[in-house]
Nucleic acid binder design. Structure first.
Lengths: 109, 109
DNA sequence: TATAGTACTTTGTATTGCATAGTACTATAT
DNA sequence: ATATAGTACTATGCAATACAAAGTACTATA
């Protein structure tokens, strides 16, 4: 049993919530998301992020637009659809419930 | 994108932590664990729990002993090994960090 | 022109929650 | 004595996602 692996498993599902949250605050592109998550000490890597963004787009939760960048290649800026906003709401509840369940179990009440 | 699926993904890795926690409090068998988690509103099913307990045993984190039951078939009572105790300690830290990272991101600080 | 940095795409692997099917033991009903 | 129900555990295959790695493409600089 590998601690790092369990950490990775714990991230499953949570990353989706966090990413939707970041995009819900303001339009951003992949590196923005990586930076903001790194700042919060939640590391997400490209191989995870890009397919996840694609899945969310395909599920109708995100829109994107291409924007020229000041220096470097063009960027894909993402924003939430209405559906994305309400899904994020639901995920917030879900996380809250999970969090509380874990607290309940681990505190022994 | 399916809310239930995301919930299931969020449970990955977390169940391991909770189960170790429950066993760490006192020796118990599978149905005890299912009951205690159900009480905390965190549902775990047999198809998940038994293989997980087996994996933890094989990883040296759990021991078990068979006990006759008052009414019904014999039961497997689990307890933590020393290694299991320190792994649980580490998982507790891991959960705390993840939790805090999520709070940080979702509160917008 | 070549290189470096940035941004995105694709693919395959490992792992675990879960559904399902099955075995085995004990208690109760017929 | 046999059948059924309840309880406890085992095994297997599937779906989904984090992640590593390889690759393409655009822009700036040497």
């Amino acid at each position: 049993m590998d601690l790092e692996n369990t950490q990775s498993q714990m991230r499953k599902g949570v990353l989706e919530y966090c990413i939707l949250c970041i995009i819900g605050k303001s339009e951003c592109y992949a590196s923005d998301i990586i930076d903001q998550m790194k700042e919060a000490k939640l590391i997400v890597v490209e191989g995870t992020l890009y397919p996840l963004l694609t899945r969310l787009k395909n599920a109708g939760l995100l829109n994107y637009k291409w924007e020229e960048s000041k220096s470097g290649p063009p960027r894909k800026y993402y924003s939430l659809t209405d559906e994305g906003k309400s899904f994020l709401q639901a995920l917030s509840g879900t996380w809250g419930e999970l969090s509380e369940a874990v607290t309940s179990i681990t505190s022994g009440k």
